[in-house]
Amino acid sequence: MRIARLLAVCWWFQLKQMTKAGLFVFTSIIEPLIFATLAYYLFKAGHRPGTLLYAALSAGLMGIWTSTLFGSGGAINFQRWQGVLEPLVASPPPYALILFPQTLAAASIGLYSLASTLVWGRVIFGIPLHFVHPVAFAISIVVTIVSLGVLGLVMGASFILYREANALSNMLEFPIWIVTGVIVPLSLLPGWIHPLSWILAPTWGYRAIHNAALGGNPWPGIGIALGLAAVYFVIGQAVVVAFERRARERATLSLV
């Protein structure tokens, strides 16, 4: 109960402080609209009208990943620059429980991209917003956000703990779009990529979202995404503990 309240309040706080950044409007609303417009024309050129909603959804999901990646990968460094990393670490909750609401908020910000691309699609291109299983659609979105938030926790701590991983962070945007099947369906990807897709929780979340919106069974995807998220959380928490220990040994919590 205590922990649920802590997570909820901290998530809300982080969301509030992230939406006050100027750059946020561009990365989470404008950029996805550009993608959505591009996707629309690409799909239209293919003369498959049934896939227009797929295009709009995909553009939104791309935006969710982008905000997760940049919001989580830089989460710890952001705290360090603000000078809040020390007071946060010095507070009683395990640091993973403080970092997680922040990465979850970064993923949640992506909801703005999803909403804006759907509205854009509806208003500008007249794409009908008809979802086959509306309740399952809402649930699969929440589950996807949670699974991305947990993935963000793993990334947030790893990028700091392993400098090599940090170099990767800027290159991860596009490959993950491909591997998780937002741009093209997984079935079109070469077979050797499939295992990589399967261990990424968002792959299953996206699949559930697509099935719930366009028809198909969303529940297996929802279940697998949640299961993987639980596994990631355990990994993420271990990486965070290692990060904290090392930072206290090497005196890297503050900038000075």
């Binding site: 309040v9 901290c10 007071p87 946060l88």
Partner: peptide
């Protein structure tokens, strides 16, 4: 105020 509320939460 928001800063104080946030840290109050962290300190339970």
């Amino acid at each position: 105020l928001d800063n104080l509320r946030y840290f109050s939460e962290l300190y339970g």
